[in-house]
Design a protein around this nucleic acid. Sequence first.
DNA 1: GGAGCGATGTCCT
DNA 2: GGACATCGCTCCG
Length: 220
Amino acid sequence: MTEPLDPAKLKSALPRKFYDRDPRRVSCDLLGKVLVRTQGKKITAAARIVEVEAYFGPHDAAAHSFIGRTARNAILFGPSGFAYVYFIYGNHYCLNVSCLPDGVPGGILFRAVEPLFGIEDMAQARGMPLNGNLRLLTSGPGRLAQAFGITRERDNGKDLTDARSDLFIADDGFHVPGVLKTPRIGITKSADLPWRFVIGGNPFVSGPRKFQVAVQSSRH
DNA sequence: GGAGCGATGTCCT
DNA sequence: GGACATCGCTCCG
């Protein structure tokens, strides 16, 4: 677990320049930041980012942008800081944020978050009892998307750098104690590249234990 | 706790 | 037609 939430610190979103860099650097710096869903001026859900994966373009065979620009992946080729939401395996949505300048593809997949606020709503969205295992609420890309009510229709193309969006990412000043770097999960191509980043020891990190072993750790 | 597997829609490799 | 950046359920140890 990380630390309690101070809603007063969630009023501003991370700026576009934050995302306008190498997705590996952005991934590392996104850990510990807060994903915020609002309705009107009210925060309805907030959760700390504890696991992400970096994806590139032409040189990353696992990336959706690897095949070149299509109607589906166009967001990844556009300016940074925008939500790329896709539907996978007939059941699940996955949330990404675009990185790198306009014209250069790249993005980051949100794989797990730690619920901080709005847990009742998340449980309802997941069809889970409130007294269930909290880890099952948001541990995994499909689960966190469902907990936040994220769909392609609703959120694809949304500007995550705008606190007036009903979905954005904020910095509440939390300091990440240790970042672990591991291979990415659930892919077959380029599966050896260590482009998955997690907050070491956080119980909301997804995946089997073997994927929680770091190939390299670093200070934030 | 871990391996195996089916369900399911969208987009092209 | 086949692949897919997943999940939840079995079955087995």
